[in-house]
Structure formats: C-alpha cells, structure tokens
Computed example of a mutant assay.
Amino acid sequence: MKNIVIFASGTGSNAENIIHYFKNNNSKSVVAVFSNNSNAKVVEKAKKLNIETVVFNKDELYGDVVLSKLNDFKPDLVVLAGFLFKFPEHIIAAFPNKTINIHPALLPKYGGKGMYGNHVHQAVLDNKETETGITIHFVNEHYDEGGIIFQKSVSIIDCTTFEEVSMKVHQLEQEYFPKVIDKLL
C-alpha cells in the first residue's frame, strides 16, 4: 500500500477531492491530513471521512515534532494542497522527490512568497494575461521553484474578476491533481 499524507491550511477542497479519489483504491490511500490550523475546514472534512488528522503549530513544524509524526505514517508521497507555510528543509530532505505542491498559476509566473490563492488570480488579471492554469511541482527550499511535474492551462479571456479566474483554476485542480498523484505513485 502506498501512503499519501496531505498538508493543508484552509477549506480543504483539494484534500477532500484527493481523499475521495483514492477512497476505494487497493494500492494507494490518504492516511493522514496535517494542518497548521485547528479551525480549518480541512480538519473537519478529514475527520468526517475517517482520515487521521494532525494539527500542529509553527514551532512544531520547524522543530522535530511534525517530522516525527509524519514518519509514523510512512508516506510514499507528501502532498501540499493549500498549505500556506514555507515547507521546512529538514522535512523535504527526509522525503527527497516525494513532496509535491499544487500552484494556481503557470509557474514560473506568479510564484513566490505571498503568491497564493486570490492574490495569484488578481495578479494574473492585473497583468492582462489571456491564460492561466495550474502547476504541480516538487517542493524544494524555495517557494514554487521545484521541478515541474505537470502543467495545464485554461483561457481566461472571458474573465473580469479574480473569482471567475479562481473557478476555472479550481476546475483544473479538481480534475488533474488526483490523477497526477496517482501517476506519480
């Protein structure tokens, strides 16, 4: 059995989608959801789906606590799905080429510190881009600079608000993120 551990900070729509995708899979499954936010909807969703949850604070993330708990789950893949902290180098080193992230733009454009969620979508609109998309990439010590695994673009010529851009990007995330995880494993 291949074990997937998801890190998320917010609503958990991608985490929930990934959990459902692998729910009846006999060779791969989501074994835990880690979150830095005890009030995050992702924690509630994971519990409802009978997925173990681990909530931690910043000190535990950058210390040894989170890595120790993560090792208990023996992950074959660590998936960042809307996780807002910079991922610690010592955890990346413990899981080389086994930690991935999804970014709501076509990297290397619109990546880096502070570029997440609607900040990205608004920047894309402000720069009058005609397309945007998703990038699934390996995580390294720099924000959004790890090797690109998969990209998919979508036209946003008809979009006038970041909410419209967000909806199109979210559709790509829901369709492709679980499939790319499946293929990687």
Rank of each mutant, 00 (worst) to 15 (best):
V65Q: 08
G63V: 14
V120R: 02
N26M: 10
F22G: 05
L172A: 07
N17F: 06
M1A: 12
E141G: 08
A123K: 02
L84P: 01
I100R: 06
I136N: 04
S38Y: 09
E175V: 14
N39Y: 15
L84G: 06
S27M: 14
H170Q: 14
S13A: 11
T161S: 14
Q122G: 01
G63C: 12
K23G: 09
I100E: 10
S27A: 12
K48Q: 13
G133W: 11
M167G: 02
E141Q: 15
I181P: 05
V139I: 06
K168W: 03
K2A: 12
K98Y: 01
E131W: 06
L107D: 02
K48Y: 05
I134E: 02
G117Y: 00
G146A: 13
A105N: 01
G63F: 11
S9K: 08
T160E: 08
E44S: 10
V33R: 01
V124P: 03
G112V: 14
A123G: 03
M167I: 07
K41A: 11
P88W: 01
E163G: 12
E89T: 12
H90L: 07
V31Y: 14
K168L: 07
H90E: 06
D76G: 02
K48P: 07
I19W: 00
E145N: 09
V54K: 09
S9D: 07
H90N: 13
V33M: 00
K58F: 06
M115C: 10
K86A: 08
G133P: 04
K23R: 12
E16V: 05
D158G: 11
E163N: 11
N127W: 07
A40L: 05
K113G: 05
F85T: 04
N118Q: 04
S155G: 05
N14L: 04
G12S: 03
H90F: 06
G146N: 01
N3G: 12
A81V: 00
A15C: 04
V180F: 12
P178A: 09
V154Q: 09
A46H: 03
K128S: 15
V154G: 03
L125E: 03
F138M: 00
E89M: 10
K109A: 11
C159G: 05
H137C: 08
N14E: 01
F56I: 12
D64K: 08
L107V: 09
V5A: 02
Y110L: 13
E131C: 07
